[in-house]
Simulated assay, not measured.
Amino acid sequence: MVRLDNITLRYRPNATPALNGVDCHLAAGSFSWLMGPSGAGKSSFLKLLHLAVRPSAGQLHVMGRAIHTARRQELPALRRRIGVVFQDFRLLPHLDVLENVALPLRIAGRGERQLLADATEMLRWVGLGERLKARPEELSGGEQQRVALARAVVARPALLLADEPTSNLDEAQSRRVVALLQQMHRLGSTVVVATHNQWLAEENPAAMLRLEAGRLVEHG
């Protein structure tokens, strides 16, 4: 599903690398925790995987495509097969919950009736079937995170990435979000979850990727 070969990522020429010499592969259908202290490179690692940035050096393959040599116009179709749960939710405040979740399907050109049915199903799946017409500001942090998760998975992504999805949640809400991510894994998505919560990883054993100062120090 994903292969990184000697990846280096710099955001500016001659800057300290955000990632340095990273080698790893993620098998299709795997679930991985991405751990490390603040500034270790977790968000940069996820940006590479959802094609927001390209490596400064090395080779990156995602779903069989060589991203380091791909033309820019080839990337949007690939991104539509990748779901991302952002730490800050990134819900659109002028849209209700249903329209926020339906947005990826609308962008992909899905028919109106089908996209609304699919978005409604996803919101029921995350336990928010009664909040379809609510605006994001009317929801709690945990509810907003579940809306963000529903939006990320509504198109049934092959690769699902979550950047600190429990950082603003209490323990009960954190467990609920992780359970939903695990359910997507059981349905076939390759899942990578970046987190500071060591207890979550210990409570839900899975493959571990650990970054320190931009280097991958644990992979297994």
Results as ranks from 00 to 15, higher is better:
A201T: 12
A119T: 00
A206M: 00
A158K: 05
A119R: 00
L116H: 08
R90I: 06
L181W: 01
G109A: 10
L115F: 02
D118T: 14
N14D: 13
P136V: 12
H219L: 12
L92A: 14
V153D: 01
V193Y: 02
A66L: 15
P165F: 03
S167E: 11
M1C: 10
A66G: 08
L34E: 04
P13G: 11
L200E: 02
G109P: 05
G21D: 08
L128C: 07
E164Y: 00
M184G: 09
S44Q: 07
R3S: 07
G29S: 09
E203S: 15
D170M: 05
H196K: 07
R90S: 04
I82N: 06
L91E: 04
L98R: 03
A70H: 05
D96T: 02
S56N: 09
R71H: 10
L34N: 03
V85E: 01
E138P: 01
M122P: 01
P93H: 10
L181M: 05
S174N: 10
A70G: 08
L216H: 03
R135T: 14
L105A: 03
N197D: 14
L169F: 00
A119C: 03
V147G: 01
L75F: 04
S167Q: 11
D88M: 08
S43E: 09
K133T: 13
Q59N: 15
R106Q: 11
V193D: 05
A40D: 10
L46S: 06
